[in-house]
Simulated scan of single mutants.
Amino acid sequence: MFDHIKFGVRDFAVSKTFYLKALEPIGVTVVTDWPPNGAELSQPTGKSSLCLYQTDEKPAHLHIAFVAENRHQVDAFYYAALSAGGQDNGPPGLRPQYSGQYYAAFILDPDGHNIEVVCHETEA
């Protein structure tokens, strides 16, 4: 649906490391670095990207949801994000309030943004 999302972070190095580690299970890598403190991240064949840059501004918290191919990727994201310094905001599991197949996990990033990875597929 979107081409890219760009938002500011307090500590670029910390946030870049967090996102790369947390989103590694769904194949996210650096597409472009914008020296000195910016980067575009995406999946290898992705049509959308996440752009981070250093700022002192205090934007409102975001909710960003990434698509996972399977529930294992949702679980892997959750544990990778916790080990990268993220804060639990909802462990992996079904969210029947959204739909019968909505399997997601939620993490707060270093700036307090709510990062979600969701799978809409049934369990294999």
Rank of each mutant, 00 (worst) to 15 (best):
M1P: 13
F2C: 13
I5N: 10
I5F: 09
K6Y: 08
V9H: 10
R10Y: 09
R10W: 10
R10K: 14
F12Y: 15
A13V: 13
V14R: 15
V14F: 01
V14A: 11
S15T: 07
S15N: 11
S15G: 07
K16H: 13
K16F: 10
K16C: 12
K16I: 05
K16M: 06
T17V: 11
T17I: 07
T17L: 13
F18N: 02
L20V: 00
K21I: 05
A22S: 08
E24N: 06
E24L: 01
E24I: 00
P25S: 12
P25H: 08
I26N: 00
I26R: 05
I26Q: 02
G27E: 03
G27D: 03
V28S: 04
T29I: 12
T29S: 09
V30F: 08
V30M: 11
V30R: 01
T32E: 14
T32A: 11
T32G: 00
W34D: 07
W34Q: 09
W34F: 15
W34R: 04
N37E: 12
E40N: 08
E40S: 15
E40P: 00
L41R: 03
Q43A: 12
Q43Y: 01
G46L: 00
G46A: 01
K47W: 06
K47H: 12
S48N: 14
S49R: 05
C51N: 13
C51T: 14
C51S: 15
T55S: 14
T55V: 09
E57M: 10
A60P: 06
A60W: 06
A60C: 05
L62I: 10
H63Q: 15
H63P: 05
I64S: 06
V67H: 14
V67E: 14
A68V: 12
E69N: 14
N70M: 06
N70K: 09
N70S: 08
R71H: 15
R71F: 12
H72K: 10
Q73C: 15
V74K: 05
D75C: 13
D75I: 14
F77V: 12
F77S: 07
Y78T: 07
Y79A: 05
A81K: 03
L82K: 12
S83A: 14
A84E: 03
A84F: 02
A84H: 03
G86P: 01
G86W: 01
Q87C: 04
D88K: 03
N89A: 14
N89V: 03
G90D: 05
G93A: 03
G93N: 04
L94Q: 00
R95K: 12
R95T: 00
Y98N: 03
Y98R: 00
S99P: 01
S99C: 05
G100L: 09
Y103C: 02
Y103L: 04
A104Y: 05
A105F: 04
A105S: 13
F106T: 10
I107L: 08
I107G: 00
L108E: 06
D109Q: 06
D109T: 08
P110L: 09
E116M: 07
V117C: 08
V117I: 13
V118G: 05
V118W: 01
C119A: 06
C119V: 07
C119R: 01
C119K: 04
H120N: 13
E121I: 11
E121V: 13
T122L: 11
T122M: 08
T122W: 08
E123S: 08
E123H: 12
A124I: 14
